[in-house]
């Protein structure tokens, strides 16, 4: 797969009087074409600084960013033609209707066949009925869809979504996520920053955890979860929980405990033990209704990585 973005050793320090805040410290990321890449981290971790550098709003202190073969420090205008941003924190222009605003943004990107393109993005984002309404009067959910419509005008190869569902109700967030999935199917490269772990897990092909300006870990959601879990957790739904615990506790490397009535949690140090567990359960007097592997959530993984690496850095 081709690389869409290559970030190499990007550092940025902000100075305020005598104070210096390291916003980014030697950040290295590669984003492949067509993938949704998640950037997750607490407030002040450096996510916004990184996407601001990529969009040409801030110049880096050191390092290079290559986007679609263009160097961010020398060819930012070329990059801007192929990139767009949706941010949950930006506003819409006052005194312009949705259609007028889109015409304005279309002119900024010199979009060919602008009227047709505006019709297309309005249709895609279900905003056609409000095309003549003032953009500032739209509801939060509609405004966010409008931002997406604006960001899609220039048919960007790379789309940066900075907390696109922040502050939205469940229904609006769902419709934005649905749109993002649709964009992925079109083959666009998407960089997504979010605090919503469920959203990240649902949408992202790969994720980078960032904290205090440093990349802590990069991988697919499954890889990241495996990285932090030393033992596998298996949940057994049965008729005689005490019997199951007694049977399984005899196996070396396995520890079992009753989680609640008829529910046993089993910690296994290796998948190789699963065959032994199944054999033991077959000889047990209890009925076995189901056996499920319990994965850690992305949220648990995130907290473990952030806290673990945070302590290492202190």
């Amino acid at each position: 797969m081709d690389r869409a973005v290559t970030i190499t050793n990007i550092s940025k320090t902000f100075h305020s009087g005598k104070d210096a805040v390291k916003a980014l410290v030697s950040v290295n990321i590669e984003i492949q074409k067509g993938e949704i890449f998640g950037l997750l981290g607490p407030n002040g971790a450096g996510k916004t600084t990184l996407i601001s550098i990529m969009s040409g709003l801030i110049s880096p202190e050191s390092g290079t960013i290559i986007i679609l073969g263009y160097d961010c420090s020398k060819q930012i205008t070329d990059i801007k033609k192929h990139l767009n941003v949706v941010s949950g924190f930006t506003g819409v222009l006052n005194s312009l209707t949705c259609e007028q605003s889109l015409t304005y943004y279309g002119l900024l990107y010199n979009v060919p066949n602008l009227k047709t393109r505006i019709n297309d993005v309005l249709k895609l984002t279900n905003l056609t009925p409000v095309r003549n309404q003032l953009a500032e009067e739209l509801s939060s959910g509609m405004k966010q869809r409008f931002m997406l419509a604006k960001a899609l005008l220039n048919e960007p190869d790379i789309l940066i979504l900075d907390e696109p569902t922040v502050g939205l109700d469940v229904e609006s967030a769902l419709s934005i996520r649905h749109l993002i999935k649709q964009l992925r199917s079109e083959g666009r490269t998407i960089l997504l920053t979010t605090h919503n772990m469920f959203e990240a897990e649902e949408l992202c092909d790969r994720i980078a955890f960032i904290n205090r300006g440093k990349i802590m870990e990069i991988g697919t959601p499954t890889e990241l979860k495996r990285h932090v879990v030393s033992n596998r957790l298996v949940e057994i739904h049965c008729s005689e929980d005490e019997c199951v615990v007694k049977t399984l506790s005899k196996i070396k490397g396995v520890s079992a405990s009753v989680k609640s009535a008829n529910l046993v949690h089993v910690s296994v140090d290796s998948y190789k033990k699963m065959k032994e567990i199944m054999k033991a359960l077959a000889n047990c007097d209890s009925e076995i209704y189901s056996i499920n592997e319990m994965e850690p959530t992305l949220e648990e993984t995130y907290l473990k990585i952030i806290n673990k690496k945070g302590k290492q850095n202190e």
Binding site: S55, L57, T77, V85, F89, T90, G91, L93, N94, Y109
Partner: peptide, 12 residues
């Protein structure tokens, strides 16, 4: 004032 400045500044 309308918080739309980043949209313009990220354009070409």
């Amino acid at each position: 004032w309308s918080k739309a400045l980043p949209h313009m500044m990220i354009s070409p």
